[in-house]
Design a protein around this nucleic acid. Structure first.
Length: 555
DNA sequence: GAATGTGGCGCG
DNA sequence: AAAGCGCGCCACATTC
């Protein structure tokens, strides 16, 4: 059963029940203050709640202690359906842009505040046209008669619930541990806007060794000039270029850059801004990346450096269950291509090890580089050199990514496993290709067009894999979320729940006694995600999984 | 002084 | 060794 929620201009809410044909058969008008009780009451039947955007509706419910099992996020769904080749023939995809397109764009935009909104601070964007969610839902249903898109929309919507629940509960974060890590590496915090002591000492040492008394090592132009003045032939100040140099200033400089990064990206300022009451609240943007991966709009949850993961510590009596999918992208490629040889190589063991055992390459490192190169479109170096061997061993898998690249080079769109579709190249891209195909085209025009076509081909080559891997991860999380809700009292403060997601990795915060059960549920959900995407094709998705007190111990 | 671009580096 | 995909974020430099 579906119940559509629609906010009225007076602040009230219309709740419309739909029958199996998506036709309204019962509607109630609620005062704003009655919404929470209504949802709590009706949730017992586990309807699928249909609303404009989970990010707008769900925080107030969570704040009132109400969780829902399923929803349809119309904005996220709209965006997928408007751009998918699988729904291209639908009315929804064909019509001119509506206010739903605006909402879909806003859904991907940064939120103003990292804190949860007030109870009824649910703001809809002001638009001229009406935004009838019943009509929109019906149009979406008509655009998805069945098939993989249905699953994609369900997974995306489930993801929106996960994102809001993680934002609401936050990830356990010990500010005192974080502070200790910072103080140990950087020296005590300086409150006068100066660098902490250890950084300051390194800066002084660098100035001394480069004979540049006024040097600000944070300024790339100044630093580059100083390095060149002492006779070092460098074109940048990147660490892998510096690492090759033989000069006494290089070692302290590399250490400085490392610590400076910690200081600026995840130092005390970050701690002050993003950690409250022992929780870090990531600002996820569901589907924020073209491939459907999540993005963040503050806090950098997807870039937490390894050196501060010690600060992620389970509450007393609780544990962290951390799981990541081993070699997710090549395994997803295996399923996409139905490559039996690659499935065999990955079954029950490390995929890269078996590529070595099969004699395709000589080391695990080479196997990894070759596989990544195949998915990213490497053209030079070791990775490109290893491609012929990989192509012989796994012809179907490599043919699939090669084909996706060829489509992109021709300016065509490519489609993920569940139907997410790559964007069309922009107008300037097409102009360049057009110009190069004209009779009077110069060699430079042709070179430029060729290089640009190759660039887009590398993007579409990777798109099919990365987007499908993102779908696997969404299905994994969606399944896991439902299973976890059955454990204990299913609440967000007394039972296991997701607290972190990172592309191919999840973290569950759980009362200690449930940890073994959680591990089983995590594995079960991964297996189910594989079945949802690839049916009976026998591709494995093994997990690395650890029950730990701190994130730092997970790997 | 605000907005935009660049270099660098963290993550998958 | 640091390219071949996707990102966000910081500080500095440049532009308006």
């Amino acid at each position: 059963m579906h119940i559509v929620l629609d906010r009225r201009p007076d602040g009230g809410v219309a709740a419309t029940e739909l029958d199996a044909a998506a036709m309204p058969h019962k509607a109630v008008e609620l005062e704003a203050s009655a919404l929470i009780a209504y949802v709590r009451d009706r949730e017992a039947e586990h309807p699928r709640w249909v609303w404009s955007s989970t990010a707008h509706w769900y925080p107030a419910l969570l704040a009132a202690g109400v969780r829902v099992q399923r929803c349809v996020d119309l904005a996220l769904s709209h965006r997928i359906l408007r751009t998918s080749l699988l729904s291209a023939a639908s009315e929804l995809a064909g019509e001119a842009a509506t206010s739903w397109d605006d909402i879909a764009r806003l859904a991907a935009a940064p939120l103003a505040e990292p804190s949860a909104p007030a109870l009824f601070d649910v703001v809809e964007p002001a638009t001229a046209e009406s935004l009838d969610p019943v009509r929109e839902f019906q149009a979406q249903q008509a655009a998805t008669p069945g098939g993989p898109l249905r699953l994609l929309l369900a997974a995306e919507s489930a993801g929106s619930l996960v994102a809001e629940e993680i934002r609401f509960t936050g990830m356990p974060w010990r500010a005192d541990v974080h502070d200790r890590v910072l103080t140990e590496s950087l020296g005590p915090r300086a409150f006068d806007g100066r660098r902490p002591a250890r950084l300051e000492a390194l800066a002084a040492q660098i100035r001394e060794l480069l004979g540049a008394p006024g040097l600000n090592p944070d300024s790339q132009p100044e630093l580059l000039a100083a390095l060149r003045r002492v006779g070092l032939d460098v074109t940048s100040t990147r660490k892998w270029e510096l690492r090759e140099l033989d000069h006494p200033a290089i070692a302290p400089l590399l250490e400085y850059k490392n610590l400076y990064r910690l200081f600026t990206a995840n130092g005390w300022a970050w701690l002050d801004t993003w950690v409250r009451d022992g929780r870090f609240r990531p600002d996820y943007v569901v589907g924020g990346v073209v491939t459907g991966r999540w993005a963040t709009s503050g806090g950098g949850a997807l870039q937490l450096p390894k050196n501060i993961r010690r600060a992620v510590v389970a509450d007393r009596g609780w544990k962290l269950v951390v799981a990541d999918a081993a070699q997710l992208e090549p395994r997803v490629l295996t399923g996409l291509a139905s490559d039996g040889a690659m499935a065999d190589a990955g079954r029950g063991r490390d995929l890269y090890d078996s590529v070595v055992a099969a004699g395709v390459v000589t080391s695990r490192h080479e196997a990894k580089v070759a596989m990544l190169g195949a998915m990213y479109g490497a053209t030079t170096g070791d990775s490109a050199r290893l491609m012929p061997g990989l192509r012989r061993a796994f012809p179907r898998a490599i043919a699939l990514v090669d084909h996706a690249a060829e489509q992109g080079e021709r300016g065509e769109q490519v489609v993920s496993r569940l139907g997410r579709t790559s964007p069309r190249p922009g107008a300037s891209w097409r102009e360049v290709q057009e110009r190069a195909s004209q009779p009077g085209a110069s060699a430079a025009d042709e070179r430029r067009a060729r290089s640009q076509a190759r660039d887009w081909g590398r993007f579409t080559r990777n798109f099919v894999v990365q987007a499908s891997a993102a779908e696997w991860a969404l299905c994994w999380m969606a399944e896991l979320r439902l299973r976890l809700a059955e454990v204990g009292d299913g609440s967000l403060d007394g039972a296991p729940h997701l607290v972190f997601f990172l592309h191919d990795e999840i973290m569950v915060h759980t009362p200690e006694q449930f940890a073994p059960q959680v591990e089983r549920l995590v594995r079960g959900a991964a297996a189910q995600a594989g079945r949802l995407l690839f049916g009976t094709f026998p591709v494995d998705f093994p997990l690395q999984i650890a029950t730990v007190d701190t994130y730092a111990d997970a790997k």
